[in-house]
Design a protein around this nucleic acid. Structure first.
Length: 271
DNA sequence: CGCTATGTTGTTCC
DNA sequence: AGGAACAACATAGC
């Protein structure tokens, strides 16, 4: 479920498992998962090792002791699994880095929306993809300027990675709820006060999620995320709260910018 | 079977 | 030109 907190969790996982081991081989089940040719990937990485990591928004960059940098994007369902070769390969491990020493790092790609490739430099990649400032680093003033010049619903603008990098569909609903902003509010009408509340909510929601290793089921009870229907999760059906934490209204469900949207019609007035 | 899905990108329209 | 709207991508799970 890779929004910023998941990618941060994966980054720490990779740091804790896969560094400083010689890469002996790379298996790729489907070349569509690569933004580089398979030959370029193996030429650049076999014999090298991972040395450092950096995350910007939902993008994970892994440095090596050679020149190229590996870029991971987790799409909607990507994950990592580090395992010993005596164990069976994890399901959906469609790309596998095999290390000297008998361990492997699997890049799990259930729906093939995930991508791995080589980039010249982090800055060049961010520029080319127009990825904005990371959500944990943006200032209220920059957020305000980036919102006020747009005309779409504020939810759509916050999801745009050029506005601010790392916010996804579940987190944006939580951020808007915590900041008491209606998801369909015209982004061009935000005040500096709105931007300051949104900024504080972004920090709060992301810090909360990262501290719980992105396990949304462990969010505080005053979060609206518990109203959301989680497709496959058993937690969803059992613990779902259809009532807003304010206790005065049922959580409303709609679509904004083509995405499933949950909000409280009392707490989040479109004004 | 039919419907939904965490993200991004390409196309079309304005 | 540039922004907005939305379909498309590939697949799993319910």
């Amino acid at each position: 479920m890779p929004e910023l907190p998941e990618v941060e969790t994966y980054r720490l996982y990779l740091e804790g498992t896969s560094m400083h081991q010689r890469i002996e081989n790379i298996e790729v089940e489907d070349p569509k998962l690569l933004t580089t040719t398979y030959a370029a990937l193996t030429d650049a990485l076999v014999g090298r090792m991972f040395t450092d990591t950096r995350r910007v928004g939902k993008n994970l960059f892994v440095m090596t002791d050679g020149a190229p940098i590996v870029h991971f994007h987790f799409g909607m369902t990507g994950d990592l699994a580090y395992y010993h070769n005596s164990l069976p390969r994890p399901r959906f491990a469609r790309i596998v880095f095999g290390f000297a020493g008998g361990f492997s790092l699997g890049f799990l790609c259930p729906r093939k929306f995930e991508r791995i490739g080589l980039v010249e430099s982090i800055e060049a990649h961010l520029l080319r993809k127009k990825i904005g400032v990371d959500a944990l680093d943006i200032t209220p003033e920059v957020l305000f300027e980036n919102l006020r010049r747009r005309k779409s619903p504020i939810k759509s603008v916050l999801l745009d990675q050029t506005t601010v990098a790392g916010i996804g569909n579940w987190i944006v609903d939580e951020v808007l709820f915590q900041a008491k902003v209606h998801p369909e509010k015209n982004a061009g009408t935000v005040t500096i006060g709105d931007a300051e509340r949104l900024h504080a909510a972004i920090q709060k929601v992301l810090q909360t999620a990262i501290a719980r290793e992105a396990n949304y089921g462990q969010f505080p009870t005053d979060f609206i995320i518990h109203a959301r229907q989680w497709g496959a999760s058993p937690y969803a059906q059992a613990d779902r709260h259809l009532q807003c934490p304010c206790g005065k209204a049922a959580v409303a469900q709609s679509r904004v910018g083509g995405r499933a949207t949950y909000f409280c019609p009392l707490c989040q007035i479109n004004g």
